[in-house]
Computed example of a mutant assay.
Amino acid sequence: MHWKDLEVWKLSHEMVLEVYKLTRSFPEYEKFRLTDQFCRAACSVPANIVEGNARHSRKEYIQFLTTARASLEETRYHGLLARDLEYMQSLDYEQFEAKTERISRMLNAFLRSLKAKDKHA
């Protein structure tokens, strides 16, 4: 299956677009601090899904999806920090957190299915 057809990729790409929109309103002095880290971590999620999909082994795919999951958790932390610093409205944070939780569940299910295939191969 092509990575553009994966629902987890589609949702994580949407998340990246939202992070970029949200960070536009962050203070200028955060440009090379929180804004940069938040955007980089968010971009890493769908990018690792794409790279894993392009690999020729299930083991490598699992490795890249595991990295995507770790980047997602980093992204979630940056969202929490942005909210606590009052750069993000509570409602925006709640919507962001709901989306990242959904992505997390999808990544975990995808990883479980790939690992199960390894056990049966």
Results as ranks from 00 to 15, higher is better:
Asp5Pro: 01
Val8Cys: 14
Trp9Asn: 04
Ser12Cys: 09
His13Leu: 03
Met15Lys: 07
Leu17Asp: 06
Leu17Val: 01
Val19Ile: 13
Tyr20Gln: 07
Lys21Tyr: 02
Thr23Gln: 02
Ser25Asn: 14
Phe26Trp: 12
Pro27Cys: 08
Lys31Asp: 00
Phe32Gln: 03
Arg33Thr: 11
Thr35Ile: 10
Phe38Arg: 08
Arg40Gly: 10
Ala42His: 08
Ala42Ser: 13
Cys43Pro: 00
Cys43Asp: 09
Pro46Arg: 05
Ala47Pro: 01
Asn48Met: 07
Glu51His: 07
Gly52Tyr: 08
Asn53Glu: 11
Lys59Glu: 13
Ile62Thr: 03
Gln63Asp: 11
Phe64Tyr: 15
Phe64Gln: 11
Leu65Arg: 13
Thr67Phe: 12
Ala68His: 10
Ala70Gly: 15
Ser71His: 08
Ser71Gln: 08
Glu73Thr: 09
Thr75Leu: 05
His78Arg: 14
His78Pro: 00
Arg83His: 13
Arg83Glu: 07
Glu86Gly: 00
Glu86Ala: 10
Glu86Tyr: 11
Tyr87Pro: 02
Met88Asn: 01
Gln89Thr: 04
Ser90Ile: 05
Glu94Pro: 00
Phe96Leu: 04
Phe96Arg: 02
Ala98Thr: 06
Arg102Thr: 13
Met106Gln: 14
Asn108Pro: 00
Ala109Lys: 15
Leu114Ile: 08
Lys115Arg: 15
Lys115Thr: 09
His120Val: 05
